[in-house]
Computed example of a mutant assay.
Amino acid sequence: MPPTDHRRATAERNAEAILGAAEAQMARGTAVSISSVAADAGVSRVTLYAHFPTREALIEGVVTRVVGQVRDALADARLDDGPALETLDRVIAIGWDHLDRGGAIARVGADALTPAAMDRAHAALHEPLGALIRRGQASGEFRDDLSVAWLLTTFFAVMHAAGEQLRAGALAPEDAVGVLQPTLRSVFAKPAG
């Protein structure tokens, strides 16, 4: 292996180890510090800072990674098949499953990141969800008096609000999808008449 490839492979392994350590700490609800993440990842602080120059960049990296896992799950969800409203229901169920499992990560991300950083971290979902919204608007199932961008923003806001309600004890995990689906359907569905 040429030296450049070896260095790149080492850098990729280090970045993956750093993200894995930070994700594990966030999932446990442990305070994420550069020192503790570096120690758990088996890298120096200098190496960690080379990949993530700030704590916020590290947290954004973890949220981006988790959102990528949701994107991968949505790739198997047949977003181009069936009526758009039924597809929306599948997206909500998949999204909730990941949000419920990653609730502590979502909370740390929401507390530590700016709205712009949260938007960047969710960018991997903008295209598949935006395509679903455009398909639903073209078929007449989704309202077209609101922009794709606004419907995306509303989708993420409602999903994360459900996560906050769950953490506050106001929503039972087994009830979440049953609350989210009709709520988001009412936002997305084209009004009758």
Rank of each mutant, 00 (worst) to 15 (best):
A31W: 05
H122T: 04
D144S: 15
L19Q: 02
E56K: 10
R55H: 11
G130E: 05
A106K: 05
F142C: 10
A39F: 02
V158C: 11
S33W: 03
V91K: 01
A149T: 12
V148Q: 08
A168D: 11
A170V: 06
A77T: 13
E127K: 12
H98G: 15
A138K: 13
I133P: 00
D81H: 15
R90M: 10
D72Q: 15
R55V: 02
T4E: 13
L88N: 06
P115E: 12
A112G: 08
L151A: 08
P115C: 13
D40N: 10
D81T: 15
D100R: 15
L79K: 09
H51N: 10
R45C: 01
I18G: 00
A192Q: 05
A9D: 09
P83T: 14
A192F: 01
H98E: 12
V62A: 09
A106S: 14
A161H: 15
M118D: 03
G136Y: 04
P115S: 14
A138Q: 13
L129N: 05
Q137V: 04
R167L: 13
I59T: 03
A161F: 11
F52T: 00
A123H: 11
V66C: 06
R8Y: 01
R7H: 09
R71T: 14
T114I: 07
R143V: 07
V37Q: 03
D111P: 01
L85H: 07
G169S: 12
P2E: 06
P83Y: 14
D144T: 08
